[in-house]
């Protein structure tokens, strides 16, 4: 009997906890609707397409290729990123460059975003600092698979 009473008290306490959540959250919602300053917002929700959460400083987002001072891509087609890529989504085709300092430039540089796992190994491997993952774009979605293979033009943007 005493045990049952204990259960009953706990049931009441549980109800009070949800009531407390309801009342405090409603209080903050009301303050917001009235345009008054509130200590916090009534919900922890981030309303995604309108509000976006700030990305962390080291967040790995969509890739980009960096350029030299004269605008040409820094990439020298060493194929280190192609070798290290665990999902084998990078393909690079080299071409000759007249400048003997550079020697090689990429003729094609394609990353298949539908296969990329955003591990960041290509960025680590690159000796020329030619590829980075700091664009801050995380919404990589397309209607067709073909649109997900990013070529040199798209990556240099």
């Amino acid at each position: 009997m005493i045990k049952a009473l204990g259960y009953f008290l706990e049931i009441i306490r549980g109800g009070l906890i949800t009531t407390r959540h309801f009342v405090t959250n409603m209080w903050f919602h009301t303050l917001k609707v009235l345009g008054l300053k509130a200590k916090r917002s009534g919900a922890v929700t981030i309303q995604y397409p309108e509000q976006k959460k700030d990305l962390a400083a080291r967040h790995r987002s969509l890739h980009r290729l960096t350029r030299r001072d004269d605008g040409k891509p820094r990439c020298v087609s060493c194929l280190l990123c192609v070798t290290v890529c665990p999902s084998e989504c990078i393909s690079v085709e080299a071409a000759e460059d007249p400048d003997s300092e550079i020697q090689k430039v990429p003729a094609k540089f394609i990353i298949d975003m539908s296969r990329c796992c955003f591990c960041g190994f290509c960025v680590e491997a690159c000796p020329e600092d030619a590829i980075r993952m700091d664009t801050g774009k995380v919404e990589v979605a397309e209607y067709r698979r073909a649109d997900l293979s990013y070529d040199l033009d798209k990556l240099l943007k």
């Binding site: 949800t18 959540h21 309801f22 959250n25 409603m26 919602h29 009534g42 919900a43 922890v44 929700t45 309303q47």
Partner: peptide
């Protein structure tokens, strides 16, 4: 709405 407010959602 009420369940959302109880659970700190919108």
């Amino acid at each position: 709405k009420e369940s959302a407010v109880i659970q700190d959602r919108i």
